[in-house]
Simulated assay, not measured.
Amino acid sequence: MSDKELLIPASQTDSSAINAQTRRGRLQMLLLLLACAAPVIASYFAYYVIKPEGGKTNFGTLVHPVQSANPAWFGVPLQGKWTLLIARPAAECQIKDEKCIEALFLMRQVKVAVGRESSRVQLLWVNMDGKPVDLEVAKAYDEKVAGFKVVSLPTDSKQRTEFLEWLNKEGAGEQIQLIDPSPAKMMYIPVTNSPKEFASIKKDLEKLLRLNHKGENL
């Protein structure tokens, strides 16, 4: 032991050792807390800085954040169902109008294609002009045959304005809109007659039905 060490009181030596141990303990605790918090910090960084992509789809475009839907706009229950919605004027939706018929046909075929899960999906056509649906169209796309519920625009002016703003957000008014069971719009889908794109839409819906049961009351 050196002369300098002999000059340091024992109490001071013990205190220095204790302080050093305390500092090491605090550093270890801090490192442990950082290690535990790293995933949380990373998720916050990804959400607020990088921004999420909202997952991947095969064809449809995910809506982020989702856009709440008001069942009062339609007079049809939405909660607990996956709803494919289209908005078209009845006057423009004739058998000869391929664009409109393609949209109805696509929705009907997607519902059929999900097989046993089809009872979890409903089809909604918002008749934008309130005129009678063409008889030929009605026969092929009524509720009993194809599962379509045809509703008119809200009569209340405030609700009508709210619905139209909701419908046309992100320029999606002409597309098929998918409403989740909460209910909220969470995806919009372009109208297509491509078999390959139809298969991709089917995969998107099947994936959602497989992974998401929360909120359904079937």
Rank of each mutant, 00 (worst) to 15 (best):
N58M: 04
A103P: 01
V112K: 13
E102K: 14
G54Q: 09
V63C: 04
R88K: 10
S119G: 08
Q79S: 12
S15Y: 13
A87K: 01
D129V: 04
Q67I: 10
V49C: 01
K56L: 08
K111H: 05
Q67E: 12
V137I: 14
A35W: 03
I18M: 12
A103R: 00
I18T: 14
L123G: 01
L33W: 08
K96T: 08
V114L: 03
G54D: 08
E102S: 12
S15W: 11
Q94P: 00
A138Q: 11
M128P: 02
A35I: 14
Y141T: 04
A140K: 07
T61N: 07
M128Q: 01
F74H: 05
S43Y: 03
A20S: 10
V110S: 02
L123A: 00
A87C: 09
V133C: 03
W82N: 00
A90E: 01
W82A: 02
K81T: 06
Q21H: 11
I95M: 14
D97M: 07
Y141M: 02
A69S: 04
D134Q: 06
S16D: 09
P132E: 10
K99W: 08
I8M: 12
V114E: 02
L32V: 11
K56F: 07
V110T: 12
H64N: 14
A10K: 14
W73H: 02
P39E: 11
V126Q: 01
A103Y: 01
L106C: 10
L31K: 05
I18Y: 13
I86T: 07
C100P: 00
T22I: 14
V66K: 08
A113G: 12
C36V: 15
K99N: 12
V76G: 03
F59K: 10
P132R: 07
Y44L: 15
C36Q: 09
K111L: 08
A103F: 00
Q28E: 11
A113T: 11
K111Y: 03
I101C: 06
G130Q: 05
Y47C: 13
L62Y: 11
L135C: 02
E136K: 11
R26H: 06
G115K: 03
A35Y: 05
D134G: 02
Q122E: 04
A138T: 10
V76M: 13
G25I: 12
H64D: 12
R116V: 15
N58V: 01
R88E: 07
V114T: 03
T13Q: 15
L123W: 03
A35E: 04
L106Y: 10
W125S: 02
Q67G: 06
E136V: 04
F59V: 05
K99L: 12
A87W: 00
P89Q: 12
S11P: 05
K96L: 08
E98G: 02
P9L: 14
F45K: 02
F59C: 01
K111V: 04
A87H: 03
Y47K: 14
I8P: 02
P52G: 15
V66G: 03
V112N: 10
M107D: 04
G60F: 00
M29G: 03
S43C: 09
P9A: 15
G80S: 09
F105H: 12
L33F: 10
P71Y: 13
E143R: 13
R26K: 08
Q109W: 06
I8V: 15
P39M: 15
